[in-house]
Design a protein around this nucleic acid. Structure first.
Lengths: 218, 218, 218, 218
DNA sequence: GATGAATGAGCCTTCATTCAT
DNA sequence: GATGAATGAAGGCTCATTCAT
C-alpha cells in the first residue's frame, strides 16, 4: 500500500510526517512478523520501508518509541475495528456478541503479519511496561463491553454463570486461536478459528448461537 | 537452590554435566521471565546461575541451543505433569478432563517465571523453527488426548458439537488465561484462572461440570 | 537579546547576513560554554539561536567554519578591547600595563560564557590548526606590545630581568586565573583574579605597582 | 613502554587487568594529545593500543569511565611526582619551592603528550563534573602546600604580599607556560618555560631566587 | 572442567551535511 | 532566504563466541 509512494522516481521525495510515520510503522509490523521481536532492528525496518535508517530516529525518537507507536497503531486499529462492527450490528446482545467475534476475524485485522506482531508484543509484555501503557485501557474497555453483552444474554435465558468468566473465555479463546495460527505447524484456517470461538459462544448461549454462529429468530 | 551447591564443603566441586545444564536452564527461565526474550543474554544467565561468563557456551554449544534446551525442558516438564495427573485420575472422561485442567494450574507448573517464559517463547515461535521443533509433538499429543476425552463425554450426553473444537477451546482458554496473568495490569488469581477454564468445561459439559468443577456422582 | 529580533512586528523579517552570523556566533559561544567543545552540535546552536536546523550550514559553509568564525569573533573582540583601553590610558608604561591588565577583567570581556569558550578553544588548539590560524597574530601582537611596556619600565627602575619573561608571566597569569575561574570548584572572584595579576606586576615593578594596583605619583 | 608487550608473537595474549588498563590509558593520552578531546574515539584508542575496541569497554565500562581513569592517572602521576621531589629537597622553604617548580618540568611529566592531554581536560572541565571529581582534591593539596612555603619565605624576608596570591601566581604561571607550549605556533623550549616560572619566583623572593633559579647560601 | 580476557559483528543513536519545497 | 525532511558516516556500546591459561 505504501509501495506506491516508493515507486516514484524521486527517492528523496518528502512526505508529511504522518505519512512517513505510518510507512515506518507498517514496515515495523512486517519485520516483527518475519523476524520476531528480538531480531527486529531499525536497519531492517528502514530497509523494508525503502528509507535510510537515520529517518526512523528522526520521526520517532528512538527504537522504543517506534515500537510503542507500532503497538499503539495496532491497538487503535483493533479498537476502531470492533467499534465499527458494533455500530452496524443489531441491537440484540447476541447480535452484538456475534459482531464482536466476527470483527476479530475480519481480513483487514486478522492478517498473518498483524497476528504475528500481536503475539510478539504479548511475549514481551511481561518485561516491559510498554504493553500495559499502550493497550491496557483498550483491552479493559473491550472486556467491559463484552461483559455487558454477556450479562444481558445470560439474564435473557442463559444457564446462569458468571458474565465475567464467560466474557473472558470468549476473549481469551480468540487470542488463543490467534496464537494457534501463529504457532502450529499446520494451522487450521481462519474460518475454523472463528468457528471455534463460535462453538464456545454456542456452549454458553445455546438458545442464541448454533454451530454456525448467530441463530436467527430470537 | 544453587546456594546449596555453592556452600557445600567443597566449594568448587565439579558438578555433573546434567546438574550444570539444569542450573543454567533454570537461570535462563528466570532471566527470560524478568528481562524478556529480546534482552536475555548469556552473561545475565551465567551471572544468575552464579557461574562464569564462558560456561554457558561450554555446556551448550550456542545461545540458540541453550534456548532450545530450555524450551525442551519446559515442554517435557509440562508433559510429565499432565501425564502424572492422568495416572492418578479416575477412569471417567470427565475425571480425566478435570485432571488435565487441574494439572495446568499445579503450583509447580503454573509459576510466574514459567508462565512468563512460555509467553516469551510463544512470541518468538512465529519467526523461529525452534518452537515447532521442540514442542510440536508434545502439543499435538496433548490436544489428541484431550480430544479423545471430549469425544467420549460428548457421546455420553453432551449437546453434540465438534470434539476437536471443544478440546481446542479448553486448551486455548488455558493458554489465554496464562497470557492474562502475564499481561494484565492487575491480573486475577490463579484460582480465578482455573475457575474460568472450568466455566468453559461446564458450558460444554453441563451434566459433568458445575461452576466449581467436576460434579460428583456421574 | 535575540528575543528582541523575534518579537519585532514583522516576525519573519529577513535579517542581514551579518546579523544572522552574529546571532549564530553568540549562540555558539553559549553552547560551547555550557556543553563543552566535544558536545557542541549545530542543532543545539541553531536551537539556542531560535533558528532552524539547516540555517547554520547556510550562513557558514560548515561546522568548522562556524567554529573558526566564533573564535575569530572572540579574538577580534579581545583585541579591540585592549586596544580601546590603551587608547584612553596615560602615556607612562606603568599606566599602559595597568590598562592592559584592567582590560582583561572588563565585565564585557571577562564573562563566564566567554571565559569558558576561550578555555575550550585552548583545549582543542593543540590538535587543530584553527587556533593558530585565527589567533596567532593577535596573540603575538599582544605579547609584543606588553613586552615593549615591560622593557620600558624595567629600564626605568626595575630589578633588571628579561622583559620577555616578565611580559610572559603577566600574560599567562591572566590566562591562568581565567582557567582557575573555570576549573575550580569554588572559584575566587573576578576582583581577586585581577588582584592576583596585579600582585605579579607589583613583584616585578615594586616602584610602580602596589598591592592595589598602579601606584600614583610616578 | 607498553609496545614491548605488543611485539610478542601472540596477539591474543592475556594481560592482567592492571596492565591492560594502563596500556589503554597511555593510548588514550596519546590520542587525546593528537586528536583533541572532541575527536578522541574508543576505536582510535583501541587501534593505538593494538587492541580491539570491545576491550576498552570490557576493562572500563564506558568511554566516560576511561576518560576519567585517564585523568585520574595523570593527576596521581603528577601528585606523586611533586611529592617525590619534595622528599629529596632541602628543608628551606626556598629549596622546597624550587623543587616544586623543577618537578613541573621533569622530562617524565612535562611530555608533549601529557601537556596536551592536560590542556584538553582543562578545556572540558567547565562542562563536565569529571575534572573536579578527579582532580579537585589533588589541586587543592598542591596549592595548599605551595602556599605554606610561600608564607614561610615571605615571613623570612619577602616584600610582604599575600602568600595565597603569590602561590597562585607561581602555580598558574606553570599552567600558563604549559598552555603556551601547546598553543604557540613556535613555542619556546622547556628550559625557557622553567626559566619563566623561576623569573616569577625571583620577583617575589629576590633574596632567594636569582635569574637562574635558587640562590645558594641562604 | 572452569575462568575470564579478547575479539568483532552488529546495533542504536547522533549529527554534519544536502536539498526539495 | 528559510525550513525541515532525508541521508549516511561514524561513534559508543552490547554481546555471542573463542580461547589461552
Amino acid at each position: 500500500m505504501v509501495a506506491v509512494v516508493e515507486t516514484s522516481p524521486t527517492p528523496r521525495r518528502k512526505l508529511s510526517r504522518a505519512e512517513r510515520r505510518l510507512q515506518l510503522i507498517e514496515a515495523t509490523i512486517s519485520v516483527i512478523a518475519e523476524n520476531g521481536f528480538a531480531r527486529t532492528t531499525l536497519g531492517e525496518v528502514a530497509k523494508r520501508a525503502g528509507l535510510s535508517h537515520g529517518l526512523a530516529n528522526f520521526h520517532f525518537e528512538s527504537k522504543d518509541k517506534l515500537l510503542a507507536a507500532t503497538l499503539e497503531h495496532l491497538s487503535d486499529e483493533y479498537r476502531a475495528n470492533w467499534q465499527a462492527a458494533l455500530a452496524v450490528a443489531g441491537p440484540h446482545p447476541a447480535d452484538r456478541i456475534a459482531a464482536l467475534i466476527e470483527a476479530d476475524f475480519t481480513p483487514a485485522i486478522c492478517t498473518a503479519d498483524r497476528l504475528a506482531a500481536w503475539c510478539a508484543f504479548w511475549g514481551e509484555a511481561q518485561s516491559r511496561p510498554m504493553y500495559q501503557d499502550v493497550c491496557g485501557q483498550n483491552d479493559e474497555e473491550y472486556q467491559g463491553v463484552l461483559e455487558g453483552f454477556c450479562r444481558d444474554l445470560l439474564a435473557d435465558g442463559g444457564y446462569g454463570g458468571d458474565a465475567v468468566r464467560v466474557a473472558r473465555v470468549l476473549r481469551v479463546t480468540t487470542e488463543g486461536v490467534w496464537l494457534d495460527l501463529m504457532t502450529l505447524q499446520s494451522p487450521y484456517s481462519r474460518d475454523e478459528a472463528r468457528a471455534t470461538v463460535l462453538a464456545a459462544a454456542a456452549a454458553f448461549f445455546p438458545r442464541h448461537f448454533g454451530p454456525d454462529g448467530r441463530l436467527a429468530g430470537t
